[in-house]
Design a protein around this nucleic acid. Structure first.
Lengths: 192, 192
DNA sequence: TTTCGATGTTGACACTGTTACCATAACCTC
DNA sequence: GAGGTTATGGTAACAGTGTCAACATCGAAA
C-alpha cells in the first residue's frame, strides 16, 4: 500500500504504518539508542508531535517495532525448521535464531532488550516456541527435563547471539554451526 | 595500572575516582542509558564540563565503570571457584556468572553491552578465563573440543543471565542451578 | 450545513552531550 | 619569596532530544 500520490495530504494516509516502516528501516542502519522519535518523524515528513497521535510515547513506538521484529524472526525460524530434516530441525532452529540476530542486530536487541519493548516473554507468544517444546519433549523424558532442555537450548543460542553481537565472539558463520551442535551439547537421552 | 592519583588534593581531591564511584552507585539504581554525565557530575558536586578533564567523553567514563565491573566480576567468580570442589568448580563458576549479573544488572550490561564500554573481548583479559580454559581442557580432549566447550559454556551462562535480566525468564535462583548443570548439559568425555 | 472527533502543527520546556573560552590553584624555576 | 606554566574547574552556549499545551485542519456524522 503506497502512500497517497496526490499532494493535499494534511492527513497522512496511514501514518502509523509509515512510522513503523520508517522505524524498521532506521533500525537497519542505526542501532537502538541512536534512533530518535524526531528522526523517524522527519523521515516520514511529519512533525515530531504527530507521532503522539498514534503512540503514547517513544517506548510505545519502539514496542511496535519490536512486535514486527518478533513476527519476522518467527517466520525465519519456521522456514529454517521446515527446510531441515526431522532430527536436525532442533539445531536448525537454533542456528536460525543466531543468524537472524546477526542479520538484524538492532531489531534483535529491541525484541529481547530491557527497553521493555516486549513486556511479556517472547516464548509464550511465539509459535516457534511450541515447536521447540515438541522437540525438547521427544528428547527429554520427564516434564522437568523438557523444560530444562528448552531453557538450556534457548540460553545457548541467545548467549551465542548476544556475545557475537557485542563483539565478544567473532561473527563467524562456521562458529555457529560448531557451537550449536546437539551431538556435543546436550546430554539428554537421545543417543549415548 | 594504577592511575596517577598521587592523593594530591587539587580542587576536589581525586575527581576521577569520585566520578567512577558516583557512576557505579548510579548504575545500582538507574540502568544504563538512563545515566547521564551531568547527573554524575551533579552528584559529585562539580560542573558537567569538569568531567572532560578526566575523560574525553561520556563513553570513556562508562568504559572506566565497565573496567571496574570486570574486575569485580572476576573476583566474584574466583571466589565461587575457590569455594567449590574441584569437579564442581566448572559449574560453580558458571552459576556465579549468572548470579553476579542478576546482582549487578546495569553493570553487567555495561561490561558486555554493545556500548563499546569494553572494546576487546572480556575473555582475553579476565584470568577467570584461563581457569575456565583449564576446566574445559580436562573435560574435552582435542584443542578444538576445548574451545568449543568453552564457548558453549560461556554462551549458556551468558544467555541465561541475559534472558533473566531482560525478563524473558524468571529471576529464579533455583532455576540457575537447574540450568547450569554439567550432568545434563555437555556431552564431553567426562562420564557417560 | 453545522458540529465534532480524529489527526497534524507550532511553540515551548527541561534535559542531554559537547565545545570554546575563562578562572583558579598548585607546582617549578629563578 | 616572585613570576610563569600547567593542570584542573567553571560559564555560556549550541544542537539535539522527548514531551506537553494550545491551535489548525480535515473527514464524516448530525
Amino acid at each position: 500500500m503506497v502512500t497517497v500520490s496526490t499532494s493535499k495530504a494534511y492527513h497522512h494516509g496511514d501514518l502509523r504504518a509509515a512510522l513503523v516502516q520508517a522505524g524498521l528501516k532506521a533500525l537497519e542502519v542505526r542501532d537502538i539508542g541512536d534512533i530518535s522519535l524526531r528522526q523517524i518523524a522527519r523521515e516520514v515528513g511529519v512533525s515530531p508531535t504527530a507521532v503522539y497521535r498514534h503512540f503514547p510515547d517513544k517506548n510505545a513506538l519502539l514496542s511496535a517495532l519490536g512486535q514486527a521484529g518478533i513476527e519476522q524472526m518467527a517466520d525465519w525460524q519456521q522456514a529454517a525448521a521446515d527446510a531441515a530434516t526431522d532430527e536436525d530441525a532442533f539445531a536448525a532452529t537454533g542456528r536460525a535464531y543466531v543468524r537472524w540476530a546477526l542479520a538484524n542486530p538492532a531489531l534483535f536487541r529491541l525484541v529481547f532488550g530491557q527497553c521493555s519493548a516486549v513486556s511479556d516473554s517472547v516464548f509464550g507468544q511465539n509459535n516457534a516456541a511450541s515447536m521447540l517444546r515438541d522437540f525438547a519433549g521427544k528428547r527429554a523424558g520427564s516434564e522437568a527435563g523438557t523444560q530444562r532442555l528448552m531453557i538450556q537450548a534457548w540460553a545457548v543460542v541467545h548467549g551465542l547471539a548476544m556475545l557475537m553481537l557485542d563483539g565478544q565472539l567473532p561473527k563467524d558463520d562456521a562458529l555457529i554451526d560448531r557451537v550449536i551442535d546437539t551431538r556435543t551439547l546436550f546430554r539428554g537421552q537421545g543417543n549415548c
